[in-house]
């Protein structure tokens, strides 16, 4: 008799809130951590600033951040297969970004990617 009552009653707002919070918890967590990280961002330098030999990089920063690998791959193809030795090379990268431990490795470690350039190419 009693259990039938419960089934017939509509669930209260408090009961409904429990599964909704459980579902929203990871979403809220990521929003809070993102907001927290935004505040912290200004204080800490993740990458070492380049020892500027050139005042500007070969492409703008936003392009290099996402597409440096495309650029390097295209240049590699141009040099090795078509003999177009232009101004872009891994050696020129090293003139400003002097240390691979402090530059390349930082991001590549963070996303656990291992570029295999340095097995053959010299980069200090």
């Amino acid at each position: 008799m009693r259990s039938k009552d419960i089934l017939n009653n509509k669930p209260s707002a408090a009961v409904a809130a429990i599964p909704i919070t459980i579902i929203l918890l990871p979403v809220l967590y990521s929003i809070f951590t993102f907001a927290f990280a935004q505040e912290k961002k200004g204080t800490e330098q993740f990458l070492e600033m380049p020892d500027a030999v050139y005042t500007k990089c070969v492409r703008d920063t936003e392009y290099m951040r996402h597409n440096h690998w495309v650029l390097l791959r295209v240049v590699r193809e141009d040099v090795v297969r078509y003999g177009k030795r232009g101004e872009i090379s891994l050696k020129r990268c090293g003139e400003c970004h002097t240390s691979r431990e402090k530059f390349c490795k930082k991001c590549h470690d963070a996303v656990s990617m291992k570029p295999d350039c340095y097995g053959c190419h010299y980069y200090p």
């Binding site: 295209v74 193809e77 141009d78 297969r81 078509y82 003999g83 177009k84």
Partner: peptide, 11 residues
Amino acid sequence: IPGSTVADSPL
């Protein structure tokens, strides 16, 4: 799609 072709090779 970036990339060279044989046609524009300086060789």
